[in-house]
Design a protein around this nucleic acid. Structure first.
Lengths: 133, 133
DNA sequence: TTCTGGATTGACGCTTACGTAAACGTAATG
DNA sequence: CATTACGTTTACGTAAGCGTCAATCCAGAA
């Protein structure tokens, strides 16, 4: 059987280095909906995964609103042809965005390599002057 | 000779699909500093490249403050050993962040592929029912 | 020269993504 | 059982990133 762990809000906050406030805020924005046990939030592994996905989305620069609609879209596997087509089309768009980011990253890394190369040359010459053999 | 074009603010705004307000805001945040010709902003190719870099940074989810300090860092090639080391170390950190984003993207794309695969199967079966041969 | 179209500088407004403090309830621990 | 530690809601505050006037200015076309 799959070990179904549960977590308090501060458990998750520590694990992902967030504040409880942040996690509550994500809930208020409709990104999480943990169970309650007498008014206290109880998170399960599914909630934890969702939180992980939220943070991944944030690292990639997406807004909470975008992340929310995307998760909703992927959650509710629809049963109408039109809806299915729509979701598939949205995925296509998202893929394009991500590929754009990929090339952005590659280009940025290339730029950084160039700068670093120049700096290292400069550093080497300066070190030779400072520590003459 | 390198053809040194100049641009008005609305030229750049159109070219990058921004508003003039946005470009002025970037300047007020210290990200741009175009020449003036009797109070009017005149952008050259170097300004244009900077704007391009700003937008690339934004697409990758960096804040204007981060973008600004990074550009400043890479602009002023320092001449002190300590400064050189510091910049090189900062570049190292940035590289890590970018690599994190790369794996984030790869993982997201993989998740999307999985969802898309399921949706396409569902779509095919539905289409068979709707358009029976 | 008189329009008309941009451009400029404030200045206020708005949304997003939380921080922070108050006021209170509940769980855990010695 | 008292204290402390953690959780809850409510609400106001704040920084970032522009949008949107308003008032003014300046340049080129008619």
């Amino acid at each position: 059987m799959s070990s179904t762990s549960t977590y308090t809000i501060s458990d998750l906050a520590k694990h992902y280095d967030l504040t409880s406030r942040t996690i509550r805020f994500y809930e208020s924005e409709g990104l999480l909906s943990p169970k309650r046990k007498k008014n206290r939030r109880i998170y399960d592994d599914r909630d934890k995964v969702r939180l992980k996905l939220i943070l991944r989305g944030k690292r990639l620069g997406f807004s909470l609103a975008e992340i929310r609609t995307t998760m909703e879209l992927y959650d509710n596997q629809p049963n109408e042809i039109a809806q299915l087509r729509y979701v598939l089309d949205t995925i296509k768009t998202h893929r394009k965005e991500l590929r754009q980011k990929q090339t952005d990253i590659v280009n940025t890394l290339a730029d950084m390599d160039e700068v670093a190369r120049k700096l290292e040359i400069q550093l080497n010459t300066l070190e030779k002057f400072t520590h003459p053999s």
